Amino acid sequence: MSKTIAVIDYGMGNLRSVSKAIEHVAGADARVLVTDDPVLIQQADRVVFPGQGAARDCMAAISSHHLNQAVLEAAKNKPFLGICMGMQVLMSFSEENQGTPLMELFPGQVRHFPESRDAEGKRLKIPQMGWNQVIQAKAHPLWEGIEDQTRFYFVHSYYVDPEEPDLVAGTTDYGISFTSVIARDNLFATQFHPEKSADAGLRLLANFINWKP
């Protein structure tokens, strides 16, 4: 049976690499749409919400494309994958730009990394840019075939700090232990970029395509 996967386009995200990675794992029976049309997003079988950039710019772009309601409805009602900023904007509020209200799907803050050092005393660079381990905080179908503490690719200066502990599906250490994956019901979202994370990232995307929450 054919599946339609909508990749939300609000003008801020590496959409080509995301869509190509999804096409690669989804197979010939899937249709991948890169779209900013709320109707097509509503009609899709599954939704991917990528993003990058500053929180205030992202929220402004989502609003200018009239996507607020479409994103929230998809996040509540169908298999939904948030990536990077597509995870952060689901929280209540970001410290970025001297404070930015977000979409408020989940209670929690988006915080800037504090200055810190690694085990050898070297100052950690901000943004975190590169490969890091994800510790799986709970079992989930999207972790199938992916070993605990597998490394994924990150690029970010801010991290989510959710108020509800049961939302956390993965954590990562970068000076502090922070939430790198959240999951609830039909929603799964990652701070890392699965489309840039080699075989493990492709496996996660394939698991998402086949997920039946």
Rank of each mutant, 00 (worst) to 15 (best):
S92A: 11
S177W: 00
T35G: 08
C58W: 02
H156V: 01
L124Y: 09
E104Q: 15
V48A: 06
L167F: 02
N132S: 12
M103K: 01
Q52D: 07
T35F: 10
N97Y: 11
G53P: 10
Q42S: 15
V168S: 01
F49Y: 11
M129C: 12
D148S: 11
E120M: 10
M91Q: 14
D36S: 15
R151S: 13
Q149A: 12
A61L: 04
A137T: 13
A139E: 13
A55D: 03
P107W: 10
Q133S: 15
A119T: 09
D118N: 15
T150L: 02
S63N: 11
F178E: 04
S177I: 05
G170Y: 04
L33Q: 14
A54I: 04
A75P: 06
C58P: 02
V155D: 01
P107C: 06
D118W: 12
A119V: 11
Q88H: 05
T172Q: 00
G108N: 06
W143F: 12
I176H: 07
R151P: 00
F106E: 07
Q149G: 00
K125P: 00
D36H: 14
I83P: 06
K125F: 02
H140P: 01
D118L: 09
G82Y: 03
A139N: 09
Y153G: 05
F106M: 07
L102F: 11
A44E: 02
A74N: 04
M85D: 06
L142S: 03
H140W: 10
Q69D: 15
L72R: 13
P50E: 05
G108T: 06
L102V: 06
E144H: 11
C58Y: 01
A60R: 13
M91L: 15
G130P: 12
K76R: 15
K138H: 08
V34T: 15
S177A: 03
F93C: 03
T179E: 02
Q133D: 08
I146D: 06
S157A: 14
R123Q: 15
G82L: 08
I83S: 10
S180T: 09
L102C: 09
G53N: 08
F80Q: 04
M91W: 14
E164D: 08
W131V: 05
N68W: 02
F178H: 14
G99E: 13
E120R: 12
R151I: 00
Q69L: 04
V39H: 05
N68P: 00
S94Q: 11
G86M: 12
L40D: 10
L142V: 11
Q109C: 03
L81V: 07
R117P: 00
E120N: 13
F152L: 01
G130S: 07
L40K: 15
